[in-house]
Amino acid sequence: MLVVDEEQIPLPSHLPDWDYRTDIRLRRTVQVDVGALRTGAGLPPDAPIALAVVWTATGSGLRSSPCRIPIKAADTESVHLDVRIAGADLGGLLILETVAVLDDRMPAAAPISPRRAGSVLWRERCELRLQGDAPQFPLAIVDFGRTSFPNDAGWHLQISPNLSAATMGAMLLLINERNQAAMSAFKNAAKPRAVDKAVLSTIYMDVARTMVEHALRSEEFSETADYEDETLGATLTALVDQLFPGISIGDLRLRMENAPAHFASEIQAAVKVFGDD
């Protein structure tokens, strides 16, 4: 079971909203028939056995065991496994194995029996894909009290004047960790409450407005500019095309300059502020 906010849910196949600041917490209970395990492997009744969880992350290339429990019972034992895996160690596909192993060397074991410590007596494997394929907006949580931004602001979009720079290096949405409403909205983004939806929609609209106005104020932003893929210029061109299809950049620039308040409302309409999604 995956543990999210102390709520247990069956392990899903993937976590599209995961990022490496999110630790993975897992729980399961395993009924171990210790006697059958030993007998089946031809081991003596006193053979030491341990149950362990071993994870491998394809993204980081790391493997580790966050939990191992020696089993002392002679017949059956119910073992509760509760593990927390640091998100900073993970990425890609998380392969989770629950294993029962021989917990010490048994040099005198029968020839057909396992003798080496760590010999697998039972194993079960499951997988969890940790990252979705959808592009993510560059985002960071910061304390505005330690920046030049106003302490009570909710967010700030940093955006570079260099439209030829890579988008993911030229733009960053900062969320003020002092602002509870904004923090809660992003924390609950996977399962937003009504208030979170409203806050997210407002931020989305404001970010779109900032990006559109940033583009239109840039003298080099035009239909004839040839931006390479994944540059800020290409991203802004795509956004303007999406929000204002068929309208020339020159027209948009005039609207922004001559009627800025009305233009701001046009952007609200284009992003469907407080719409269903």
């Binding site: 362990a52 580790s64 697998v120």
Partner: peptide, 22 residues
Amino acid sequence: RLSPFVVFDALDAETLDAELRV
């Protein structure tokens, strides 16, 4: 060669060291 049958990561450091020594 042992890795498909032996999960070294499931052992504590002392037991692992003893096994590797062998």
